[in-house]
Design a protein around this nucleic acid. Structure first.
Length: 520
DNA sequence: CTAGGGTTAG
């Protein structure tokens, strides 16, 4: 949530944040805190302050109704409503309000505030088309867009384009709207650079992200704590350990404001964890005096990711014991994952009991993770007990339980559950398909294999490594010719290792050693 | 008015 301040407030909006609090770096509260204090001498508060008060109280719709009674609303009043919607997590309403104003005959002029806020709403709702339209509006209607409007444009394009799901197919170097906006900017502040760095990281261009960070510093722009949070993942993803340490050294020299920023601390821990330097991550963790839930989670998760499972559980227990430490779903998820990998039923039962005692509600994710845990600890029956007791199930729950059965040699139970899943109106997806293919292999069932393949074709299901699964399944079912056909149909230039391995293994299983040799 | 970290199935 963008609005969350560094303090761990449970409110989505820091309404109660006093304006004089020096630790409060969030500028966004200013809208509300600027409004005049409720003094008895003030008989009729200004219209704008009445509107912001309503928004502040979580009633942006009432503010909107009040707005409708004004014959000639000013720009500032319009902005108040738009921002009020956004602050109350109603970005779509903000966009709708903007478009109504745009097409109305009121003739209200928009300023930089209007555009930056509405663009934020577009970013949050990933509305690329509307964002583009607003981009056109502001080019036509805003004579002197502020730096912040450009920053909002960068953010809007970056948010809307990074979720298209076609990152690998999209040639960003040739057609990059974010970059296009960036180069048109005459003056670029640290926010613009940060947004660019984060955009390069999002699109997998880690080396370029690091380069951009360097260029920013060469231009004499002082990195902010956010700059570090944005660029650190580039070092871990690029596997650039040496420079990760160099940058950490630089961060340390920036002063306490940087080193003590909780976002910064957690991203440092995450980076060194990803790079496999978990001991250094732990040093940073221990050095941090005021730990929030996310810092604990990052450290525990780092241990689990690096297969330091006992250390992970240990730290989890330490978090449990530490006073004033709030555990959340993510903390439990990491612990559940650790126990799944330790495959220790005794621990699993203890953790399960602990979860039940400590959570008022049981999120689906936690329940799914518990199912996995019992299945890995060789207790599929307990998994199924948990599964059956669930009031609601999502596709992950079904897939988890189905895979649990099939991985534990209970293929028939898995297959029954696939039928049940469909009866309950949950559609088979690529994960269900992999489970079905495994079942077909396990049972050497040509029929299940062929049915599954037909389903894949009918529904146009595609996923990473699908050819390998299919080749393997047909080979196990004694249909090496069909394996061969899948192999030949698979993209010659883009064949991955798993596809090759499956084909070679298939030939070998069928005693076709010579054919296998051809591919070695 | 703009930018920020941790998460389950195969």
């Amino acid at each position: 949530m963008a609005m969350a301040s560094t303090s761990s407030s449970s409110l989505p909006i820091p309404l109660s944040t006093p304006s004089h609090d020096p630790s409060n770096k969030t500028q966004k509260v200013s809208l509300f805190t600027i409004s005049p204090p409720p003094s008895p001498s003030l008989k009729t508060p200004s219209i704008r302050s009445r509107l912001s008060k309503l928004c502040q109280e979580g009633q942006p719709h009432l503010a909107r109704q009040l707005f409708d009674s004004f014959p000639r609303p000013t720009t500032v009043i319009c902005n108040t409503i738009i921002i009020g919607f956004i602050c109350n997590s109603l970005p779509l309403e903000a966009i709708l309000f903007y478009s109504k104003l745009k097409s109305s005959s009121l003739g209200t002029k928009f300023d930089s505030y209007t555009y930056s806020s509405t663009l934020k709403a577009c970013a949050e709702t990933r509305s690329l088309k509307i964002g583009k339209a607003i981009h056109c509006h502001l080019i036509r209607c805003l004579s002197n867009p502020s730096r912040i409007v450009y920053n909002s444009l960068l953010n809007m394009y970056s948010s809307c384009l990074s979720n298209v799901g076609c990152l690998s197919y999209f040639d960003y170097s040739k057609y990059d709207l974010v970059h296009k906006v960036f180069v048109t900017m005459r003056k670029r502040d640290v926010v613009a650079w940060n947004t660019m760095v984060s955009w390069y990281v999002k699109t997998g261009r880690y080396v370029e992200a690091i380069r951009l960070f360097r260029v920013m510093m060469k231009m004499g722009i002082k990195p902010s704590p956010v700059s570090f949070v944005n660029v650190f993942p580039a070092f871990s993803s690029a596997g650039d350990l040496k420079n990760a340490y160099v940058l950490y050294g630089m961060l340390a020299k920036m002063g306490s404001e940087y080193v003590n920023d909780l976002f910064v601390v957690s991203s440092v821990i995450f980076m060194f964890g990803e790079l496999g330097h978990i001991d250094f991550a732990r040093k940073v963790f221990d050095h941090c005096l005021e730990k929030n839930t996310e810092i604990w989670n990052t450290m525990i998760g780092g241990y689990v990711q690096n297969n330091f499972l006992v250390e992970g559980i240990d730290l989890f227990l330490k978090a449990v014991e530490t006073e004033h430490t709030v555990l959340d779903d993510v903390t439990f998820l990491s612990a559940l994952t650790a126990v799944s990998q330790l495959q220790c039923l005794d621990l699993a039962q203890q953790l399960h009991g602990f979860v039940i005692k400590n959570l008022a509600i049981f999120p689906m994710m936690i329940m799914n993770a518990i199912i996995v845990m019992y299945s890995r600890c060789n207790s599929v029956h307990t998994s199924f007990e948990v599964f059956e007791k669930m009031v609601e199930r999502d596709v992950v729950s079904w897939n988890t339980m189905i895979s649990a059965f099939i991985q534990n040699g209970m293929d028939d139970e898995g297959l029954m559950l696939v039928h049940e899943m469909q009866n309950q109106g949950c559609a088979i997806d690529s994960v269900t398909v992999t489970a079905l293919l495994s079942a077909a292999s396990n049972l050497r069932s040509q029929e299940i294999g062929k049915q599954t393949y037909a389903y894949i074709l009918r529904h146009g299901i595609q996923f990473e490594g699908m050819d390998g699964y299919l080749i393997d399944m047909y080979a196990k079912c004694g249909l090496i010719r069909l394996s061969q056909r899948i192999f030949e149909r698979s993209n010659v230039n883009n064949r991955d290792q798993a596809t090759w391995n499956a084909m070679i293994a298939g030939y070998t299983q069928h005693g076709l050693v010579e054919a296998a040799f051809c591919y070695l």
